[in-house]
Design a protein around this nucleic acid. Sequence first.
DNA 1: ACGCGGAAATTGAACTTTCAACTATGAGGG
DNA 2: CCCTCATAGTTGAAAGTTCAATTTCCGCGT
Lengths: 152, 152
Amino acid sequence: MSEPRWLDAAQQRDWRAFVDGSVRLTEVMDRDLKSRHGLSLSEYEILVRLSEAPEHRLRMAELAEHASQSRSRLSHTCSRLEAKGLVKRAGCPGDKRGVYAHLTGEGFAALDRAARDHVETVRAYLVDVIAPGDLAALGRVFRAVIARIDEG
Amino acid sequence: MSEPRWLDAAQQRDWRAFVDGSVRLTEVMDRDLKSRHGLSLSEYEILVRLSEAPEHRLRMAELAEHASQSRSRLSHTCSRLEAKGLVKRAGCPGDKRGVYAHLTGEGFAALDRAARDHVETVRAYLVDVIAPGDLAALGRVFRAVIARIDEG
DNA sequence: ACGCGGAAATTGAACTTTCAACTATGAGGG
DNA sequence: CCCTCATAGTTGAAAGTTCAATTTCCGCGT
């Protein structure tokens, strides 16, 4: 096996900025949601996806997909959210293996409160500190990445 | 408190692409390193930072900074890396509270092997699927984010 | 109708990360 | 010197995540 195609200095610098920056940005978001609303970032993601679904409910497997989590992780996390009263599980008529996760009224209210703060954080630490064109580039980049991952 | 400044549709779309894409990209990297080299992404990061330091060693606190990890997490992770023989801890002459983490020869070899595969993955799932200008934008974005976080 | 491979979801154990306490050393004031 | 406060690092328990079963049910072929 020959020498790999190393990144050049500029590529390396940009890649590293992403690695560091995205970890740190995620930390900020997580800390913020936890301290102000008692929700972890991944719990928040779950509530968001449910809130966007028709009837505020999704099958566990779909929810896992949308939230980029393993089914097992989702099961555990949903148990916690259910204990907090933000989510409720109910059997799925038609497919007895299936389970729907529903957002409760309380869950929706909690999400609404959290989202108001969250969007300000997203602005404060990302959107408002970069050029608009660079946000668009970010979108292009990760849509391409997702497409690449999905294609196998 | 008034209505928050919600993101517009395009901003939302780009932000979401980043959230999803970065999680999924990280998963790919982690899976790849684990399956081919038995290293988690955060272990790999630690080895990288050590390899770049003068003498292949850093104080625990510095290493924690560089790798964006908590000190506690680093302690535990270093214990595991030490058990694998990739890192070695040694007291710090001059400050008896201090501890240096050293990269061992074996650690350097393992890192070298892992890095060769890792860079190909970074290319395959990111660098080679986006426009060069967009990689530069990614760098700008996260340098700005890091600066913003550091300024408090 | 029966059986069998596969999909949906959960479970429990192993492992990792977080959180709060703890040990030990350094630095500065009186 | 001694006292106090801050810093470096570790530790153990609690919380969360992963991994490999396990359970239950679907759907298809015969």
